[in-house]
Amino acid sequence: MKKEIIFILLNDFADWEGAHIAACLNQGVKPGSPAKFTVKTLSLTKEPVTSLGGFKVLPDYSLNDMPKDYAGLVLIGGMSWFTPEAEQIVPLVEKAIKEDKLVAGICNASVFLGKHGFLNQVKHTSNTLDYLKNYAGEKYTGETDYVNKQAIREGNIVTANGTAQLEFCREILYALDADTPQNIEESFQFYKNGFCPE
Rank of each mutant, 00 (worst) to 15 (best):
S43Y: 08
Q121R: 01
C24A: 14
A164Y: 08
C169Y: 05
S126G: 13
I97V: 13
L63E: 05
L63T: 10
P59N: 07
M66E: 00
V39D: 00
F195R: 14
A71R: 00
K123Q: 12
D179P: 02
R170W: 12
W16K: 10
T128V: 09
G77W: 04
N11C: 00
S62Q: 11
K133C: 03
F118I: 11
Q88F: 04
V158Y: 04
N193C: 02
E143I: 10
C196D: 09
T163F: 02
F112D: 04
C107Y: 07
F82T: 11
F195K: 15
A175C: 11
F37G: 08
A160N: 09
V111L: 01
K95C: 02
M79Q: 08
N183F: 04
D130I: 15
N127V: 13
V158K: 02
E17I: 15
L73V: 03
K101G: 09
K115D: 08
F188I: 15
P59K: 03
G53A: 09
F82M: 09
T38F: 02
G194N: 03
F112G: 05
P181A: 05
A86F: 08
F55N: 10
V39L: 03
C196L: 15
E143Q: 11
L73C: 01
I97M: 09
S187E: 14
F118W: 12
G77S: 09
G32M: 08
M1L: 07
T159S: 00
E87T: 15
E94L: 07
C24R: 01
K192N: 13
L25E: 02
L129D: 12
Y174N: 03
L173G: 04
M79H: 08
S187P: 03
C169P: 00
Y135W: 13
V111N: 00
Y146I: 12
F7C: 05
I106G: 00
N156D: 01
T141Y: 06
A22T: 14
K56E: 06
A178I: 15
L92R: 14
E99C: 09
N161H: 14
F168Y: 15
E87H: 13
G155Y: 10
T38E: 11
C169I: 06
S33F: 12
D60R: 04
K46E: 06
Y131M: 08
L42P: 03
F37D: 07
Q150D: 15
V29F: 09
I8R: 00
R153M: 12
Y131V: 02
A19M: 06
T163L: 06
G54Q: 04
